[in-house]
Amino acid sequence: MSETASQAVPRIEAYYAPTSLEEAVEQIAAGDVAIVAGGTDLMVTANGALRRIKRGLMNIRHVPGLDGIAETGGRIRIGALATMTDILESDLLRAKAPILPATADRFASVQIRNAASVGGNIANASPAADMVIPLLCLDAEVELASWKDGAVSTRTLPITDYFTGPGKSKREAGELITAVEFDAQGAGGHAAFFKTGPRPALEIAIVSMGFMARIDGGTLSDIRIAFGAVAPTPIRAPETEKLLDGQTLDDDLIARALESADTEIKPIDDVRGTAWYRRRLARVYLEEELRNVLEG
């Protein structure tokens, strides 16, 4: 029974800073590179020797077209390199998709927000990734680029179908996230974001929740509920959404919605909290939000 007692971090041997999308995806296809955007996840895991980082490091911040937040043809597009600060300060998003700035406001600290990118938040595929929650509510699509047959090839995946497990997604090894997109229509209704933590900042969510709905004279429609950190991936709660759709809230409906959401989440115990506490928080947030809606 012999083994090495330490898993040290291998040295980074090559550094790339591509200045075009072609160059970037071609290099990714050539293999063995770790993509770095803001580095706020990558450097933590690398320095903590939690994960082996690749021998090559590719900084994608010089690739044109990966940043920016803009609306074209009824679709809002957020570049993968857009930071949490960009989202927080975007007038377009404040006006048309306020759940995104509301989430950015609860994201880490100013310093981290200045560096952390939306692409990195998605790529990291943490069940607790905050920015994924509003994007789930918005039915966003993730745009992926790769190198195929000597050219850049792109495809999109609905974010609701993107994650497969903690740290895992349908993104393939050669793929770079270039942007997320969603319909501007419907993004502007009632919206709220909830997250645990007594701290004003710097808290990884024990539970997070996003809620969007259209409210017409007390009747709810177009409901979107998403939870973070209560399942192997960030999730929507479709059964609960259906239960509430077209209904008018009352105590009984709220109670049934809470029961329904409780069956849709699958939390576990970990170092940040027990499954019991996660269930409790999910219930507290949903109840608080539904009561807010009920009481106008």
Partner: peptide, 24 residues
């Protein structure tokens, strides 16, 4: 503490530590 390494750089230290075999 099982062993310790002095080397030219931190990276070399890390690599050296990974090469030490300990049987328990």
């Amino acid at each position: 503490e099982i062993a310790a390494v002095a080397a030219e750089t931190e990276d070399i230290c890390d690599e050296a530590l990974a090469l030490i075999e300990v049987e328990y």
